[in-house]
Write a protein that binds this DNA or RNA. Structure first.
Lengths: 136, 136
DNA sequence: AATAATGTTAGTATAATGCTAATGCATGAC
DNA sequence: GTCATGCATTAGCATTATACTAACATTATT
């Protein structure tokens, strides 16, 4: 089996993407920031973080939460798939915001190898509709 | 809000598609047939059927299970989305069986309006890779 | 030191998914 | 006509994901 498929749930995916897009080694996120961004209460967020930790995707030090190497890798993959399908939807005439929402529902379910093939099929744009690089 | 989005779970989707593809008024399915096709035990299947019934997608008479009108409609929509993405994956170089599996993971999550736009974008094939009509 | 912010535990709830064991019902074999 | 077989259904249980509140603990800030 090649490619990456379906190892995280929807909310785990949301959390990974949040960490990938809005944190860095210099600016790791705090639990309450994750909770408020995800519009959930801290105990709920803690639960998700705990699951991600047990999968090895997240590390915490002094309440600071950041992606592990493998978390960074899987987040990049999810974002690549996300931007590929976001681009597809936009090329098809779907609005940017709807394209983004739709892509978020499926990006963590789709095998990365298959997504890369789709990317070629839709003329390999290098940037997603928001202007971010598809392949990182 | 237009189009149809996310009103069924994965297994409800599987069951709807099974009923749509392998039953008719003349040949409705029995519970144990659904269970064995879905590789689950009858009580588990009964649970899914019960949920579909409560959503108005399925009717039963004398142990015979068939789609209601609205169940038929939503199943058709799911299949349209399925075949659209299956076609996309195949056009991209994914094998027929992998394309089908991948499409099954997402077809019930994608808004039908968006799928129809994607269908146009991929040159509006009238048949899916298995030779079945995409638009019913 | 007191208050505020933050993190964590404990307990609860729901939905989806799955199972086994037991019961109920109908039908065909004998 | 009874009995076995097949099928449907109920009851009970378990797991995972998701989410909440209330309470407690810890850490900062003033």
């Amino acid at each position: 089996m090649t490619g990456i498929t379906n190892v995280v749930s929807k909310r785990e995916r949301d959390c990974l993407v949040l960490l990938k897009e809005q944190s860095s080694d210099d600016f790791p996120l705090r639990l309450h920031e994750i909770a408020s961004t995800m519009k959930i209460k801290p105990p709920t967020a803690l639960n998700i973080i705990r699951r991600l930790k047990s999968k090895g995707y997240v590390e915490t030090q002094d309440g600071m939460i950041k992606l592990s190497d493998s978390g960074d890798r899987i987040s990049s993959t999810i974002l690549m798939v996300h931007r590929t399908f976001e681009s597809l939807f936009c090329q098809s005439g779907v609005s940017e915001s709807k394209a983004c929402r739709e892509a978020s529902e499926i990006d963590f379910l789709i095998n990365s190898d298959n997504a890369m093939k789709v990317l070629k099929r839709i003329d390999s744009p290098s940037l997603c509709p928001h202007g971010k690089p598809i392949k990182v």
